[in-house]
Structures are given as C-alpha cells and as structure tokens.
C-alpha cells in the first residue's frame, strides 16, 4: 500500500481518500474497503468556519465548541461519537460514513454488498429503519447529516453545488450506493442559510458515546419549519411534519422507534 499527500485538488488522481481515518481505517482492516493507494486529503480541503460556510475538513470537536454555527449542528456534533473520535473526524467524513448495520459490518452478502437480500429484515433489527426499509433496512447513523438536512445546508463539491438532501439516495437493485457522490468528487464546503432557531435531540442506548437510535433536528429557516431525522432510514430522513410519522413502516422490532421519534419531534418543535 502507498500513501499520497497531494498538494492541490488538481493533483487528485484516483486512490482511496482519507481524512481523519476513523471510518476508513477500520473498514480497510475489515476488508470492506480495499485500496492499494491511500490519499491523505487533509492538506487540500478547506477547514474552519468562515461566515456561513464550513470547510469539510473541520473536525466535530472544533464545531462542538463553535459559537458561529446554529445550535442544532453544534449539539449534533457534541452528542456524536466519543471525544477522541470528534478530535479526529471531519464533518465531511461524518456525512459519508457507512451504516452501523451489523450484517453489513460483518460482511453478510446483503443488498448493499451486492447480495440478494436484506438479512436485517428477517434477522436482528432492533436498531434499524422505520422508513424506506423495503430494500435495505439499515439506519443512517449521522447526527450531523440530520442537523444539516433540517438546516437546509448546501454542499459545494469539486463538481457541483447541491442541497444536502441530494447527496443521499435510497439504494435499489440497479444502484446499491447511498450517496450520489461520483468517483473522484470531493465535498469542499457546507453553506448554511440564515437560521432563525434550531435544536437537535438524540435518543441513545446510553447518554454518551452512542449512535442515535433516533435523532431529531428541527430548524426554522425563512419562516419554514424543517425536520431532519437520523437513525430511521437508510439515509438521513427529511420529515414533512409530525403527521408523516403515521406513514412509518417499522419492522416487527423497530416499532418502538416510531414512538421515540414522535416524542422527540414534539419536544423539538416545542423548543423551537
């Protein structure tokens, strides 16, 4: 294996990109990711908060302590992962993290791995999805993505500008990916609109260092209230309103998440 440290974005030419490494290194070790060339992009992607723009290289620890960002994003960063992981991990990498589904992590030949079924649907799925779980029942673990979805953030990449909702796609038979990022495309910055108020609430199995069972971000942006949820679908989930929870399609052992989501949505809206 070789490690490259390009000096500019123009020098990027294939290889597996690595920033904090908190996701890439364990997945390489487990054989889920494979690479002959690693490309350390820490030197070439923006870092820090400037006005309403956040460089994707900014760590969650830096954002947790920032007064320049909306409350929902700060709280999502503060409640994410562990202190060491927040020191290491970039916000860009957080958006691109893979599912915590144990079947996927244990390399079961599931739909996301190119196989012919979702093992979680028939197997152990207490922590899995309550929406869009037909094809893949995994639950997206990013607190930060849920917050950015509620905040209606836009992404600037090396190829385009897009709302964060368009970064994600539900996997299907023709395309098993959960993001729309193209090979070689790099997210550079996040842009936030003027936010009037925002909040992030997170239910976890313990109070610290846990992935969200359900995370609810609520934000008032240009007079409109937006709700972004983590842990409820294979991708970060935009909820059109509290009543949209009536349309949830929980699995036998994820029904409890609907009640948790309902309670958190109600509390989040009360606090806005």
């Amino acid at each position: 294996m070789e490690l490259l440290r390009p000096s500019s974005l123009d020098d990027l030419n294939g290889g597996l990109m690595i920033h904090g490494g908190t996701e890439v290194v364990p997945l390489l070790r487990d054989g889920i990711l494979k690479a002959d060339t690693l490309v350390d992009i820490r030197g070439i992607v923006p870092r820090g908060v400037k006005g309403n723009r956040i460089g994707v290289g900014t760590t969650l620890a830096e954002l947790e302590g920032s007064t320049a960002i909306p409350e929902a994003l700060r709280e999502a960063c503060r409640l994410a992962a562990s202190p060491q992981l927040r020191n290491m991990s970039s916000i860009g990498g957080n958006l691109l993290q893979s599912t915590r589904c144990w079947y996927w992590r244990l390399k079961y030949p599931c739909h996301l791995h190119g196989g012919d079924r979702c093992h979680a649907r028939e197997g152990e799925h207490r922590e899995h999805a309550i929406f869009a779980n037909d094809y893949c029942a995994s639950a997206h673990p990013s607190d930060v993505a849920a917050a950015l979805l509620a905040l209606d953030a836009r992404l600037h990449t090396t190829k385009r500008e897009l709302p964060i909702a368009d970064l994600y796609r539900l996997p299907d038979e023709a395309d098993r990916h959960v993001t729309t990022l193209e090979p070689g495309e790099v997210i550079l910055e996040l842009e936030l609109p003027a936010v009037e108020a925002s909040v992030y609430l997170k239910a976890m199995d313990r109070q610290r260092w846990a992935f969200p069972q359900v995370g609810v971000a609520a934000a008032r942006v240009a007079g409109e209230v937006r709700l972004g949820l983590a842990g409820v679908a294979p991708i970060p989930w935009l909820l059109t309103g509290p009543e949209a929870l009536d349309a949830a399609t929980p699995l036998p052992r994820t029904a409890w998440k609907v009640d948790v989501a309902r309670a958190l949505v109600r509390r989040a809206l009360d606090r806005l």
Binding site: L3, I18, G21, T22, V25, P26, L38, P83, Q84, L85, N87, M88
Partner: peptide, 8 residues
C-alpha cells in the same frame, strides 16, 4: 486525545 489504534 487521539485513538492510536485506528490512526495510521
């Protein structure tokens, strides 16, 4: 504080 087991 950094996790040396997953840092290359």
């Amino acid at each position: 504080p950094t996790l040396s087991c997953i840092t290359l």
